[in-house]
Every structure is written in C-alpha cells, then in structure tokens.
Amino acid sequence: MVVSCTSQPYSQGHAIYTAHCEGCHMEDGSGLADLIPPLDSSRLTLSDPSKLVCLIRKGLPFNTFTGQQMPSNTSMTDVELANLINFLGVEYGLNPQTIKVTEIKKMLAACQSE
C-alpha cells in the first residue's frame, strides 16, 4: 500500500474521503477485520474506474455474513466523484488512471442502466 503524504495532489478528494469514507475504511484504508474490507488494489474490480464509480454512487446490498453495508452516496456531485476517485488512485492504487468529470457522467449513465 502506498502511503504518501507529500506527493498526494488530490487534497479535495482527500477531504471527501475523510468526510464520507474514512469512518469505515479508516484513515490508512486498512478497514476493520472481516467487517469492513481494506481498500486494496489487489482486487481487480477496483482497478476498473467505471465499476468504482458505480460502487461509490450506489453502495452495496446489506451483507448478511458481516451485518455491514457499504452505503450509497447519492448526493455526491460528478466533480466530487472525480476528485475522490483520483485521490483513491494515488493513495491506494485503486484505478491508476486519472478520470475527468465528463467521463464520470458517462460511467454513471452506464451503471444506472445496469
């Protein structure tokens, strides 16, 4: 896992992470035992930006094995989503590409139609 304070250019994405994700996934992305997964770049789905956008927007259904649930983020704007995803890319190696706001719009449209 890459923990870089000095080279992290996405301070807005970091602020969004702190407000919406850190409470569960922790400051260092380590998660909590088997209850909340770590943000780990080894998971293939996470390096696919279009899947990541849909996951953050829609969350996941209640997990009956852990009793936990990844919440949806319906009020996050496209700009916030782009900042967050670019932050995750640098900080946790999730999705190494840089995403533009216009791309977020297309990806969101695609995940709604699934």
């Binding site: 409470g23 569960c24 380590s30 035992a33 209850l35 909340i36 009793g67 919440p71």
Partner: peptide
C-alpha cells in the same frame, strides 16, 4: 451499535 456508519468502526479499531 453494529450498523453505526460514523465513529464506531474507528473506536473498534482502537479497541482492537
């Protein structure tokens, strides 16, 4: 509480 989305996971991490 187990479904707490705010501070509980962080506190549990420290309890761990």
């Amino acid at each position: 509480f187990t479904s707490c989305p705010s501070i509980c996971p962080k506190v549990k991490k420290q309890m761990l």
